[in-house]
Computed example of a mutant assay.
Amino acid sequence: MKKLSVIVPAYNEEETVEIFYNEFAKVERQMDVESELIFIDDGSKDNTLAELKKLQELHSEVHYISFSRNFGKEAALYAGLQKADGDYVAVMDVDLQDPPELLPKMVGIVEKGEYDAVATRRQDRDGESKVRSFFARKFYKWINKVSSLELVDGARDFRVMTRQMVDNILSMQERERFSKGLFNWVGFNTYYISYENRERVAGSTSWSFWGLLKYAIEGFISFSTAPLAFVTSAGVATCLLAILGAIIVVVRAMIFPGTSAFGWPSLAVIILFFSGVQLLSLGIIGRYIAEIYLEVKKRPVYIVKEEK
Rank of each mutant, 00 (worst) to 15 (best):
K138A: 10
W142K: 09
S206E: 07
D98F: 05
K105L: 11
D41S: 14
Q173D: 11
P100N: 09
G263E: 02
G43C: 15
N168G: 03
L240R: 15
A76I: 11
D124P: 01
K26H: 06
K53D: 13
I40M: 08
L272T: 05
A25F: 04
T205A: 14
M1V: 02
G187M: 10
A75D: 08
T162C: 07
P104W: 04
Y215E: 13
L77W: 04
V91D: 02
S204P: 00
S233L: 05
G127T: 01
G108K: 14
L182S: 06
F71G: 11
D32E: 14
P265V: 03
S222D: 04
L182A: 10
Y215I: 01
D87R: 07
V277D: 05
Q164I: 06
F139R: 01
L151I: 04
D87N: 12
E36D: 13
G203V: 14
L212V: 15
F274I: 00
F178S: 09
K45L: 15
A90G: 11
E23H: 13
V6A: 02
L294G: 00
F262G: 05
E291V: 04
L267T: 07
K141G: 06
Q97F: 02
D85M: 12
V152Y: 07
G211N: 06
W185Y: 13
T162M: 09
K308R: 12
R177Y: 07
F39T: 07
A76F: 03
E51Q: 15
Y302I: 09
R132T: 11
D153S: 04
S44T: 12
I303E: 11
K83N: 14
L182F: 03
E51R: 15
I38M: 09
A226M: 12
S206I: 12
P300A: 02
M172V: 12
I221Y: 05
F223Q: 04
R163T: 08
R29A: 12
A237K: 12
Y288C: 01
E307C: 05
D157H: 07
R287Q: 09
F134K: 15
L228R: 04
P104Y: 02
V301E: 07
V6C: 01
D124Y: 01
H59G: 10
L77K: 14
M172Q: 13
L170F: 10
A261Y: 04
D42Q: 10
G211L: 09
Y11N: 00
W207K: 02
G286D: 04
K305C: 00
S222T: 10
N197E: 10
S208Q: 02
E218N: 15
D95V: 11
V231P: 01
V236Q: 08
E196Y: 03
E199Y: 06
S66F: 08
F273C: 02
S171K: 15
L55Y: 03
A202C: 13
G258K: 02
K298Q: 08
V152C: 01
N22W: 00
I65S: 04
K83S: 12
K3T: 08
